[in-house]
Write a protein that binds this DNA or RNA. Structure first.
Lengths: 164, 164
DNA sequence: GAATATATGATACGATGTCTCAAAAGCGTT
DNA sequence: AACGCTTTTGAGACATCGTATCATATATTC
């Protein structure tokens, strides 16, 4: 237990540093607010949780009540453009953010518990070739979101099925 | 010309009827407003254009200045749930609507002219099986958006390249 | 530590969509 | 075609999410 907690703390520390380096690389200054945001994002990265920009702001406001909304949104925007964060769109038009490795990947979202898991599998090149041929588009990118039910939710549905 | 115009008009008429039947099937009444909306959507379906709910409202307001925003949004919502409309999400979090056949398909959007084209190709079952195995999710659905540049935009870029 | 450029935060603004509820309109019945 | 019941509408308030503005505060450079 000790070791694992220690490792988490260390990995968070590294993540904080990585985020601050991203800001630095963009020529942005190291401010108290950005360090605060980096801290929180590192914790979220460690737990793999996803969040909305609003969520993040509210959480940080508990630490610093005067932290401005625009400051948080601006930071999220920078990190999204840098590829540190992923935006996950939902069917209702809303979207959440998630820290990610930066490598190309997709997401599976559990329709029951909303848990998001990364998937490394990607579209086969043949499919892209077919689409390109059919439409005469030069395909430059894609966005794939998968929906389903995770193992835990499938299990709980069996033990506690809906009565209707 | 005559014949083609006539055919377009006829196909729009059919589409109008189909939309009104969808309302009817939901147990919703046939109102002047809904008929107005059906007319406009049929025209949009014929031209294959995509639109925002706001767009649609403004266009219809020119015909009936008192038409309520909520009325249009409600109708769009119904038709979306019925599968007559598709919601196409964009990277910036916005989304547009598009009439579609109802059969499963995806979209390719031109990153330059924003034109949207339907694609009938879909994910190979092997990919879904792989993802299911890797994540232990029961995959129930997916959303795939493709981005690229259409033939026309590629051609115009060659004759008029960006100077930077 | 002074100069200077950037970042912040309060607030206004804008876009998009939902909710409310009195009034209007549809529809089945008579 | 008038009645009565139910749904629908429309106007605007409200909610949410994000962006723009700009005086002030803060980093960074010298």
């Amino acid at each position: 237990m000790r070791t694992s907690e220690h490792n988490v703390a260390r990995s968070e520390g590294k993540t904080v540093e990585r985020i601050l380096q991203l800001f630095d690389a963009m020529g942005l200054r190291s401010t108290r607010q950005r360090r605060l945001i980096a801290d929180r994002l590192a914790a979220l990265a460690a737990s793999g949780a996803d969040f909305t920009a609003q969520d993040l702001w509210h959480e940080l406001q508990e630490i610093d009540p005067h932290l401005g909304r625009a400051t948080v949104y601006r930071a999220v925007d920078v990190l999204l453009n840098e590829g540190f964060l992923d935006r996950i769109p939902f069917a209702d038009g809303s979207h959440r953010y998630r820290t990610c490795g930066g490598a190309h990947h997709h997401h599976v979202t559990c329709v029951q518990c909303q848990r998001v898991v990364e998937v490394n599998a990607c579209l086969p090149p043949e499919l892209l070739a077919t689409i390109s041929a059919k439409t005469d588009f030069a395909i430059e990118g894609h966005s794939l979101e998968l929906f389903g039910r995770c193992a835990a939710c499938r299990a709980s549905a069996i033990t506690a099925p809906t009565t209707m």
